[in-house]
């Protein structure tokens, strides 16, 4: 009986260790990730719908979410444009230092966010290397939403490059050649043949950059100035609520953000599934 049930669940194999490996994996996954996340969901459900709604639609919460999303969308858009250019020059051109440039793109993944945060603040503060040039122009960067965008652009910089790059490497130049033999100019050829194939990768990169930016905390809090309603991001609001021992408030904002993250994860998976169907490869 047990054997029959098992064979319906998994295909038989001569390799041992399935039970041990899967058992450990599930136990560890549950303890570290699933149960704690469930605790968050249970706690927010315990608030009751009206209370949750009151906390989630609080003016300060709404403007924090608006800033987190607005700045993240702008940062992801900036990185989509420049990420596309970077992927293009790294894949298609040969120039001195190309391999070093390729390596340095992952810096935001490797550099602790707090370090990035204080470094960016030092640069963009009114007396910083860049800030001192912006101030006379009447442009305040640090301690404003612009600073938030700058920090988010830094932390989400690699996503578009790293999703577009491998896809671009795989694209055979024969499509561009075919367009050229049919009379298409260079720009026409790239727009009509390369861009459609890169679209899923660009969308995935944008979504990944967005997802990372919305949750980002460390690099932003130093440069943002954290003025409630102006330059206060949603993750910071969670921390502030916690420091006020307002667990209900923290839980409500966190649950809302978690729901949004899961929605974005779903969108990313849908893009990739669509891309596999349409183009025969993932983004």
């Amino acid at each position: 009986m047990a054997t029959a049930a098992l064979s319906r669940f998994r295909q038989p194999s001569v390799i041992p260790g399935f039970g041990l490996a899967l058992g450990f994996t599930l136990a560890y996954l549950s303890l570290i990730v699933l149960i704690p996340l469930a605790a968050l969901i249970v706690r927010s459900a315990g608030l009751g719908w009206t209370e949750f709604w009151r906390l989630a639609t609080d003016q300060r919460t709404l403007s924090a979410l608006k800033l987190s999303f607005g700045a993240s969308v702008i940062a992801a858009a900036i990185n989509t444009v420049f990420g596309m250019i970077l992927a293009w020059i790294l894949v298609r051109y040969r120039f001195p230092g190309r391999r070093i440039v390729d390596a340095i793109i992952d810096l935001p993944f490797a550099l602790p966010t707090a370090v990035a945060g204080i470094a960016l603040t030092a640069l963009y503060a009114p007396n910083g290397w860049i800030g001192q040039w912006a101030t006379p122009l009447g442009l305040k960067i640090a301690y404003t939403p612009i600073g938030v965008v700058i920090a988010l652009t830094f932390v989400s910089l690699p996503f578009v490059v790293r999703t577009v790059q491998p896809v671009l490497e795989e694209i055979d130049t024969q499509y561009e050649e075919a367009a050229a033999t049919l009379g298409a100019g260079r720009l026409q050829a790239v727009i009509s043949t390369v861009l459609p194939s890169l679209l899923p990768a660009l969308m995935t990169g944008f979504a990944l950059a967005l997802a990372r930016s919305v949750g980002e905390y460390g690099s932003v809090i130093f440069i943002a100035g954290n003025i409630p309603g102006v330059s206060e991001i949603a993750p910071l609001l969670i921390v502030i609520r916690l420091e006020e021992f307002n667990y209900a408030g923290a839980t409500a904002v966190a649950a809302l953000m978690l729901a949004i993250s899961f929605a974005m994860l779903l969108v990313i998976n849908l893009i990739q599934a669509w891309s596999r169907r349409r183009f025969g490869h993932g983004a």
Binding site: D172, Q174, Y175, E177, A178, A179, A180, T181, G183, A184, G185, S192, T193, P196, S197, R278, F279, G280
Partner: peptide, 18 residues
């Protein structure tokens, strides 16, 4: 190549997938 007006059939056809 654009000015030469040649019809070129590629080995793997290079049909635009989209």
């Amino acid at each position: 190549v654009q000015e030469r007006n040649v019809g070129f059939v590629f080995q793997h056809y290079a049909l635009f997938k989209h």
